[in-house]
Design a protein around this nucleic acid. Structure first.
Lengths: 200, 200
DNA sequence: TGTACATCAGTGAACGCGCGTTCACTGATGTAC
DNA sequence: TGTACATCAGTGAACGCGCGTTCACTGATGTAC
């Protein structure tokens, strides 16, 4: 129950290590929280074994720490989707679309806390609506391209619907575990299958 | 900027009015919050023009107040869906399904704060996973029946996918307003149309 | 009809809590001379 | 090779805040006699 885990001071010149430790500690804590708003800077400091004010050595404020976590998670998800896309031969468009969707749903259901950092209720820390750069867009393009390859007449609408369906499935399943959910496999096949049927 | 709006004490025997006022004040505040966790009992008391401890005259704790709001919202949504279903002749199954979905998405996009109380991240206050009664199930049945009438081979999977898609659409649109969303009409038509195509 | 009293609809004051953040500081360690 | 010193990696102590909740209370009002 000690809130002072043994943690030795970094050597001179290696202070930046604490930054990584803080991001890691925040990630771990976020796994068990309902939203990033529930993560306190002091809890991160406790988990990392340092004084609360030491967080300010590496982050200007709480928000900046959360943005750092966000960047790590976003890269993770993008890599998972790219790997799924490239695991299928170019020719089989329907299989490729299914694989990408499956990877997205898997990431969300297997790492609910990580997923919530990316797409949780309170928006994305550090990426305000005013910010011109939309980090998710290139990744979303991956879905649009896959839908287009399947013959969708409106690939952007199809991709948006699939994204919404997968996001809804991930979050509802997590938030309402007592609902009698059909198996994940069935659901993903049903949602992708429906849009494939409409494209034909 | 006064936090003491004029509010006259209820007459003897009419103390229950405060209860309604509190639910109304909480509802108004929740319209502008990201989740029910962000709603404080003290803020509700301020909005209602009473002392914080007076909330305890009608609710055992903060959670019970939120449950009361939840009940109001759930009835609202159910009535909206029933009205949409009954606005179409029995024969046209596809139109009925579309109307119900359209009503659900409309409720969610027109009252984002209310919708979040019902299906927000942190779960439903007062309905724990352990509780046997699932208040949403009869309402969900409405969607399943409509899907079955359209000829779906697995109405429960179809209804679940549609629910997830609509939920995802509502929440993502709200949380990521800077994403280039296609028009709502197009999206609802695309998602319902896809499942209708698969059912044929 | 008058009055004592019970009840009702609240309030005043306070509690301990965790929070984000600021300021001044300390002690170890590498480096210039 | 020795030492003064600058830098680095943090900490100690404190701030004001809003929170949920508890306890004892007050003053108006309806009612029984």
């Amino acid at each position: 129950m000690s809130d002072k885990p043994i943690r030795s001071r970094n050597r001179r010149g290696e202070g930046a290590r604490l930054r990584d430790d803080l991001v890691a500690a925040a990630s771990t804590l976020l796994e068990d929280l309902d939203s990033q708003e529930a993560l306190s800077l002091r809890a991160v400091a406790r988990a990392a074994g340092i004084a609360p004010q030491s967080v300010y050595l590496h982050f200007a404020d709480r928000r900046e720490l959360l943005t750092a976590v966000y960047r790590v998670r976003f890269t993770e998800l993008r890599d998972a989707l790219l790997a799924a896309r490239d695991s299928r031969p170019e020719g089989d468009a329907a299989e490729r679309l299914s694989a990408v969707c499956r990877a997205y749903v898997d990431y969300g259901t297997q790492h609910p806390g990580h997923y919530r950092v990316l797409f949780g209720t309170a928006g994305t820390p550090g990426w305000e609506p005013t910010e011109p750069e939309l980090p998710g867009l290139p990744t979303f393009q991956l879905l649009t391209d896959a839908a287009a390859a399947c013959g969708s007449t409106d690939p952007r609408a199809t991709a948006t619907c699939l994204w919404a369906a997968m996001h809804g499935l991930i979050t509802l399943r997590q938030d309402r575990p007592s609902f009698p959910w059909p198996p994940l496999d069935t659901l993903v096949r049903t949602m992708v299958g429906a849009h494939l049927a409409a494209a034909r």
